[in-house]
Design a protein around this nucleic acid. Structure first.
Lengths: 157, 157
DNA sequence: CCTGAAAACAGACCCCC
DNA sequence: GGGGGTCTGTTTTCAGG
């Protein structure tokens, strides 16, 4: 399942991350190759799951999503059943953009994007009514300093 | 600068978020319109900045980026100069995928994606050597439960 | 603002190197 | 595994309702 990526593959990934609407010829030019090899490598990396979804980045403000919260969650429950319910809830909620299970004191972190504080409270109330939670801290973002989907691509090993 | 988005626009945005590689005909079919109007709306929304970058989602594991940290930062410095330096540092660092200035006790939160704990420490050392920071808590992700770039699109007002 | 056709263009697949 | 050409389908443009 693990694919070996050479320098050319990595350059192609960098170009696709930067702008997936580029033509094969453009990408080929920038990475110093030509159409066919670039196309073959992209196809292989798609099949291998290295390249996932092609998508578009939208402006949250333009959609009226002015509030972004990071939510730190502590729980006392650690049974499989509770966890299953909790994960289901998170995945079903489109305002939850990210959710991670953590090591240490804090059990989970969420990133939640909503129109306003009121909408966050609706989410919060819905969440705690569905699953028992010990402690919640919400951190409100005042300013998005940086937000990128582009992963840092390390050199080939 | 704020554009008015009707239901059709919102449906188109939903489709583009889900899969930006769909053809205009496919999108048109799904949203109940046809090629040209869909194309005109997409063009307008691009110009207005509602639609940004077209990109590709890569698998962090396939690139050997196995460690994801959320970093909570408290600082005692709040001068413009310090802040400028801090922001520059964050923006220059490709392993920082997200950075927000927060309201409340904690001043900043970062999301940092790196190959391993060692690489995180390198980042941490570099950061504290460049700017004075009062207190740092790193939260290590054990499991990515959910990660999406798709914003929840609220109905038209 | 939408429909439908026409022109320009890029992606997918081929054979040759 | 790369280079170049060709065919097919899609994007983009435009005249007209």
């Amino acid at each position: 399942m693990t694919v070996r990526l050479d320098e050319l593959d990595r350059k192609i990934l960098g170009e696709l991350q930067a702008d997936a609407s580029q033509t094969l010829d453009e990408i080929a030019g920038k990475v110093g190759s030509s159409k066919t090899p670039v196309w073959n490598r992209i196809r292989k990396m798609r099949e291998a799951g290295v390249i996932g979804q092609t998508t578009v980045i939208l402006d949250p403000e333009a959609l009226g999503l002015e509030a972004c919260f990071f939510v730190l969650i502590r729980t006392s429950e650690h049974e499989t059943d509770w966890q299953r319910k909790f994960l289901e809830t998170l995945r079903a909620r489109p305002e939850v953009l990210e959710a991670h299970r953590l090591a240490g004191e804090i059990d989970y972190i969420l990133k939640v994007q909503v129109p306003n504080a009121r909408a966050y409270d609706d989410f919060y109330q819905a969440l705690i009514s569905e699953v028992r939670i010990f402690n919640v801290t919400a951190l409100l973002s005042m300013e998005r300093i940086k937000a990128t989907t582009a992963l840092p691509i390390p050199p080939a090993r």
